[in-house]
Design a protein around this nucleic acid. Sequence first.
DNA 1: CTGTTAGCGCCTTCAC
DNA 2: GTGAAGGCGCTAACAG
Lengths: 335, 335
Amino acid sequence: MRDVAAHAGVSTRTVSNVVNDYHYVSATMRAKVQAALDELDYKPNLMARGLKRGRTGIVTLLLPKIAVPYFGEIAHAVVERASHLGCTVMIDETGGRADRELALLDEAARSGWVDGVLLSAEGLNGAALANLPVDIPVVLLGERTAKTTHDHVGIDNVGASRDVTRHLIDIGCRRIAALGGNTSRGDMTSRLRFKGYRAALRDADLPADDALYARTPQYTRGDAAPAIRQLLQLAEPPDAIFCFSDELAAGALRELHELGVSVPGQMKIVGFDDIDETRFCIPTITSIRPDKADIADTALTMLLDRVNGSTVQPHDVKVTYELIARESSAASTSR
Amino acid sequence: MRDVAAHAGVSTRTVSNVVNDYHYVSATMRAKVQAALDELDYKPNLMARGLKRGRTGIVTLLLPKIAVPYFGEIAHAVVERASHLGCTVMIDETGGRADRELALLDEAARSGWVDGVLLSAEGLNGAALANLPVDIPVVLLGERTAKTTHDHVGIDNVGASRDVTRHLIDIGCRRIAALGGNTSRGDMTSRLRFKGYRAALRDADLPADDALYARTPQYTRGDAAPAIRQLLQLAEPPDAIFCFSDELAAGALRELHELGVSVPGQMKIVGFDDIDETRFCIPTITSIRPDKADIADTALTMLLDRVNGSTVQPHDVKVTYELIARESSAASTSR
DNA sequence: CTGTTAGCGCCTTCAC
DNA sequence: GTGAAGGCGCTAACAG
């Protein structure tokens, strides 16, 4: 920058003014400096600028695992949106573990690199999320915590689960199983989706049978198989399964195929998240599609508002979702 | 830091020494400073440190699209390995476009944020990659460019393609199609895989029929359908298809299902990359598994070596791969 | 409208 | 072994 100033015969202040589009610079001056800038191929050192300004334009995205399709799609939406907003995204993986979530949050907060954090928490429970020991802007992604002490954006998990369960009921299912997570483990995802599922059953005056909830350690494709076997061994097996993630649904499809159970002929399957893969599975999988671009947009906007000093009440934004009916829950005429 | 120094009754120099594990500090001093550090909950400002040191410990990973399963899995491996090596990963998407690749590379190089770049190039051709106009360490990921002017890590694409094609020949296929990309478009991936495919045909004295290569705009699931239809309309349709990505293979499976062609009964399918999904498709998909953890490890190690000033000849490292035979290429006894 | 200057928080050469 | 001081590149009061 000093070189540029010397080259243009002005002070660094003026160079800075031009670089930062300061309002009061004469056109001639601006042109002169710009020429020097171009000639010397000047690019500001963002680190120095960050140090001075106390802001970097970097946000951290904390995810359980980037290779999980749903998180990959969210990350894509965030990165894309961020680039439009002129900021850069750092990604770290928490493995869905509370301690890692806390540690990475802390690191982000204290390193000075990062203006704010988007946290897709999986390990931390509501209470822990309610008082995160950080003084950096945080926006929570995904399932909701009890108290809203931080901004949060997600979809109405209960409503969506209710919708997709009712969809199954509408096409004639009467013994609907739920599959995924563990509601008694403080895992918000399964809790909310289970709640919606039960609500739909109630709405339709269907009995709620505890045996019809099959727990899984995670939400991956591989977790489905044991749960499916468990459900099929029931004296009265289900005629439909609401899987709490599309990956579980894909795994379920696979296991049912191995067991010779036809979908949707003998069993209806629905998933959640609408990952790209569901459109190509055999059969294609009915799912709930959260508006991921909107999630990314809303979350980043809220985060940047906080970074810019907004102190309004923490907001809880619900983004729209859509039920996408596909083959796996087609009302079967033939079998 | 000044606060800590005051609190401990020493100079900032000594604090710095303790923080950075400088060798010559008396144990008592170290203990005293450490106590102050703990008490004040000191965390160094990485931005200031970076500004001073000229190094940040941040590497940028430039990918076409993070939501693509293969890249998601690579990103996971990189992020995980990086955290072991004590550095952080920034992710940006190029969309596979040469101009974006160049622009993001340039930005990374000049911003001062980033120590080095891992670039999974898709748009830039060999010549462009050979003389990237950047003075920042870069390690190329994936398909190889002609000249080795930068470090590069990937698998032997030609060899792997040859292997998987031979696998099809071994189980009795005689009319093997290739599907994916466009070899005449400067797209390295398809070029190398096509080359291996043709080599295997030659090895087995099978004729090379140009009609058996179906081009696709990209490597996504959705790109497969038109290509599949094209192949099936041939006077002599293929009895096997080597898809240049697993996503294409999954899309092919879907389209063949819709057309009533059974896999592996009437048609064998193989893919490439071994994304997680292949283990759960119906049928499961035979694929080439590059050692992704090794790719990440090797690439980061090479990159950090460069960052640390290594000036050895650019290296081209080939990581191992494995042919994973699955149902989609099972020698069918029944149909 | 533009020049001068004091740090942002840290590391590190130089003395002691 | 430890203290003092300069400066990494930039921004933003504070003059002028």
